[in-house]
Design a protein around this nucleic acid. Structure first.
Lengths: 196, 196
DNA sequence: ACGATTTACGAACGTTCGTGCTATTTTCTC
DNA sequence: GAGAAAATAGCACGAACGTTCGTAAATCGT
């Protein structure tokens, strides 16, 4: 089917546009224009703006996983994999995987007070992400790489906060050192909890 | 003048609305309706939507300073004041000073890819905020409360990241423990750098 | 209390939004 | 290559957007 190919390329562009303008600022007319197709032709692929937003979130999640998790899973479980996730995350910001900064950081703040299916989906994905981070931490504990008194939820919270903080300083404040700073913080935090 | 009183109450409401819907989602018609006044009457106070946004940001900054800095300045400079700022920040989230979560966290992520006067103003205010945090840290160093090898920019980055992380977990993920977690992280980080 | 000035309103503008329809073109199937 | 099915375009809609303008009403200084 050609339709699904078109759909893919629409969503590819939609993800980039939404990372710049927000999921609510993502507009069907603007998107159609950028792709050189008609509003109604594009619209027919989704049936509603909300469906377009949901599909865009899904596509962004794929990219997120591909860029951050897939490479990190090459590393052996435990400390190396946990560290690889952190490095993937920061390099994902540095590389500008989404042109407007982390799609999910932006979506989280945009939709934290907008109940509905999109919020539900974003929340669910963020829960999954934090959950994955916790799991990686727990594995590192199980392997004996991290001290047994490490609280996975607590550490996952702190690491995620550093990532979002790096995104903020890098994109809004144009602070080129932000990523270095985050890296330093992650390393010192993790090495303090590490078992020699 | 009555106009300035009206203007104030418009902006008071605008801040709340913008914290829920975003500065771009803040709409003149909606705002006018909520205040029981006409679109054109409201519009006349600002002359353009951008001016309304800028005035809203200014009003939010006043509230931010009033809720976070003013109380903390009661504390003696050094470690106590630094700690008070951190506690103010977290209580400011818990108390729901802005109904949709921290206005500036939201505005930062919304405008990090939207060049223009609003972005400039938000960036400037965030620079001021981080700067004030750095200054409080530097004071604590000068007072001999923090170890002399503490890097103020680095620590300010980390503290701010924890605040934003708390906002994220609290508002999007409905994680009631988020603030406790952030508090724990702040305390353990600061006490590690403290001079006994 | 009156005249000057500020403040607010109502109606309308041109655009853009999301969303339906109906055709027409393109693609797939046999 | 003909016929079925899918994909796209064209057009129109009602609503909401930011903005303008002329006018009425409220408020002000004296």
């Amino acid at each position: 089917m050609k339709g699904s190919r078109t759909r893919q390329s629409i969503l590819e562009r939609a993800v980039d546009l939404a990372s710049l303008e927000g999921l609510e600022g993502l507009t069907i007319g603007r998107l159609a224009e950028e792709l050189g197709m008609s509003k109604s032709g594009l619209f027919a692929h989704f049936g509603s703006k909300e469906e377009l937003q949901l599909a865009t979130v899904e596509m962004a999640a794929e990219r997120y996983i591909r860029e951050i998790f897939t490479p990190a899973l090459q590393q052996p479980r435990g400390f190396p994999r946990l560290m690889a996730i952190c490095e993937s995350w920061l390099s994902y910001i540095r590389r500008g995987v989404f042109p407007g900064g982390c799609f999910f950081a932006a979506a989280s703040f945009e939709f934290d007070s907008r109940p509905g299916p999109v919020q539900d989906r974003v929340r669910r994905l963020m829960d999954d992400w934090i959950g994955a981070l916790e799991r990686a931490i727990r594995m590192a504990k199980d392997e004996g790489h991290l001290r047994p008194d490490v609280d996975p939820s607590q550490l996952a919270f702190e690491l995620n906060a550093l990532f979002f903080g790096a995104n903020f300083s890098f994109y809004l404040r144009n602070d080129g050192e932000a990523i270095t700073r985050a890296q330093r913080a992650v390393e010192s935090r993790l090495s303090a909890l590490r078992v020699a």
